[in-house]
Design a protein around this nucleic acid. Structure first.
Lengths: 223, 223
DNA sequence: TCAGTTATTGACCATTCGGTCGGTAAGCAA
DNA sequence: TTGCTTACCGACCGAATGGTCAATAACTGA
């Protein structure tokens, strides 16, 4: 594949003298380079040689760190998706105010995260695309991303109902958490595929969703 | 690639005597076969030989109908995504009742569509994944899917506000249509990547979203 | 029946890719 | 210094892929 960007990145980074590094130094370089390569070319289109070149490293070295392409890919995904959720869970654990406010903050945090780093979105999109061909990856997504996110949202909703903030019948809607999560996820996907300019604005979506959700969950006014 | 399913499909279909067909007959066969191939293997992983085998046809024939792999892919996408929107637009045009009811019907239609045909979801997922590498495809998606869907939803919301059904301040939220569309799209993506069993149930999401949206858009009760 | 058109084939080519392997040298311990 | 471990290289291989092309056989109209 003749790829300008990859080529330039290669020559730029390969120009640095090749030193022997400790695995703790080299691994992040390889993961970062692989992320670029996978993001730009997809799983099938990405080449080990390309990833190696981006890292300024010989192809063989990657096989010193990973058994094969598939394992490299899963490692890249793992290293990227985790931080978001730990951050969100920390927010929930630390929050003290109303559940409506917590939900607003949670939604805001998620959209901000989508808005700032484009690569996350690209990788998320890539993950979606490849999950069904990597059972291990689909398991990972379901366990570490989807279930975790749904549990987080559902917990806040449940607490809000218990506190009398939200309409009680929301407790009987098992699909509610997914409906609340989906816009953020989709915002990320849209940005990944269309770019920041043509995709619906995360800020606008955030505002609209917060308004919709807080109204939609509010207890009906008496009368 | 050694693929059991593809192999079986091949032998099964190739057993039929090879006849000369008119392009109008052969084209759908090739598109259908290519859809299967792309769905199962992604763009990079799909092979022209595989698609040809599934269609029970020699590889060369595909090049008689399409200039190359990229064009075949875009043709497959085009032929699949269109019908949903024409159906939805027909529904809107024909509807006579309240806008709240129209919105409910629209959401229901979209989720039903997602629930019944799995291949649509898989292809949609594939489209998301490959769009940024095919500018023409990204344009197509933005023009024929996203914009059209957003316009459809926004129109109903606007009409509902004008009719006094929905809260007037919803008119000031440009991200609202995207928020309303996203759960359906995401439901499709989730089913495509996790399968019908592990993905959030479209029926449950539909019910929750309808309830949330109709409450969230309703005019605040006086008092 | 015959010529012209074209749907269809399958062998073939150049290229690329994932993965292997023997070898090199840098760091470290003794 | 010596010797062991291991990060690192880069040439190499078999397999698979996208794409080509000359040959063929099935339709069509005259």
């Amino acid at each position: 594949m003749h790829d300008e960007a990859a080529e330039k990145a290669e020559t730029a980074r390969a120009a640095a003298p090749r030193r022997r590094l400790t695995p703790a130094e080299r691994l992040p370089q390889i993961l970062e380079a692989a992320l670029e390569e996978f993001s730009e070319s997809g799983y099938g289109g990405a080449s080990m040689a390309g990833a190696a070149a981006r890292a300024g490293v010989a192809k063989g070295l990657i096989y010193h760190y990973f058994p094969g392409k598939a394992e490299l890919f899963t490692a890249v995904v793992r290293s990227c998706i985790q931080p978001v959720f730990t951050e969100a869970e920390k927010l929930v654990a630390a929050h003290a105010g109303s559940n409506a406010d917590l939900l607003r903050q949670l939604i805001g945090l998620a959209y901000r995260r989508v808005g700032e780093d484009l690569r996350d979105g690209v990788l998320f999109k890539l993950l979606l695309a490849e999950a069904d061909r990597f059972p291990e990856l689909a398991d990972f997504y379901q366990r570490e991303v989807l279930s975790r996110g749904l549990a987080l949202v559902a917990g806040v909703v449940r607490a809000g109902i218990a506190a009398g903030e939200f309409r009680p019948d929301a407790a009987d809607q098992p699909g509610l958490a997914a409906v609340l999560m989906a816009p953020v996820a989709m915002s990320s996907v849209w940005r990944g595929m269309l770019g920041p300019d043509r995709a619906p604005s995360p800020e606008a979506m955030c505002e609209a969703q917060v308004a919709l959700v807080l109204n939609g969950l509010a207890r009906p006014a008496p009368g």
